[in-house]
Amino acid sequence: MSAAELSEDRIERETTRRAHRFGSWASTATRHSPWEDALGVIAGVTLTAVGISILGSLGFLTGGMAGLAFVVHYLTGWNFGLVFFIANLPFYALAIGRMGRAFTIKTAFAVALLSVMTAFSPDVLRFAYVDPLLGACLGGLMLGFGLLALFRHRSSAGGIGILAVYLQDRFGWRAGLTQLCVDLVVLVTAFAAVSPAAVAYSVLGALVLNLFLAINHRTDRYLAV
Rank of each mutant, 00 (worst) to 15 (best):
T48K: 07
R18Q: 15
I96T: 15
A198R: 01
A157F: 00
G51I: 01
L143T: 03
R174W: 03
V194E: 01
V130E: 04
V203M: 03
L82I: 15
I42N: 08
A149Q: 05
I54A: 09
G77P: 08
F212L: 07
A157P: 07
G81E: 14
T107L: 13
I42C: 12
I52W: 02
G146A: 09
L213V: 00
G205H: 05
A19Q: 13
V72S: 02
A224L: 12
G97V: 13
H153F: 14
R10F: 07
L39V: 12
G97H: 03
R17V: 09
H32T: 05
R10Y: 13
S57G: 01
L204S: 10
A206L: 07
A38W: 12
A190H: 03
F120G: 02
L147N: 06
I54R: 07
H32P: 11
S121W: 01
V50G: 01
T48A: 15
L211H: 09
L55I: 10
F103A: 15
P196D: 08
A200L: 12
R17F: 14
L89T: 15
L125E: 00
F109Q: 02
G159R: 06
L143N: 00
F171I: 04
Q179H: 02
S27Q: 10
L6V: 10
M65V: 15
I215H: 12
G139Y: 10
I54C: 11
P90F: 03
V203G: 05
L75P: 15
A192W: 05
S24A: 01
A157R: 02
D9F: 03
I54Q: 04
F70V: 04
L147T: 06
F91T: 11
G100R: 05
L47K: 03
L75V: 14
S24Y: 08
T178D: 08
Q179R: 04
A3N: 12
A43I: 10
G51K: 06
I105G: 02
T107S: 13
H217L: 09
A38F: 15
V186P: 01
L58V: 00
N79E: 15
F60A: 01
Q168N: 11
R218I: 09
L133F: 09
L211N: 10
V225L: 15
R221N: 15
D9L: 10
A108S: 14
R221M: 10
G64V: 07
A19C: 08
H20R: 11
F85G: 09
G176H: 00
G135S: 07
G139T: 02
A69W: 14
A197S: 10
C181S: 14
A49E: 03
A29N: 13
A128M: 09
L177Q: 06
P90K: 04
V165C: 07
N210D: 10
V199M: 06
G63V: 11
G139L: 08
S27P: 08
G97N: 11
A95R: 04
L114Y: 01
A224V: 11
S33W: 04
A4G: 14
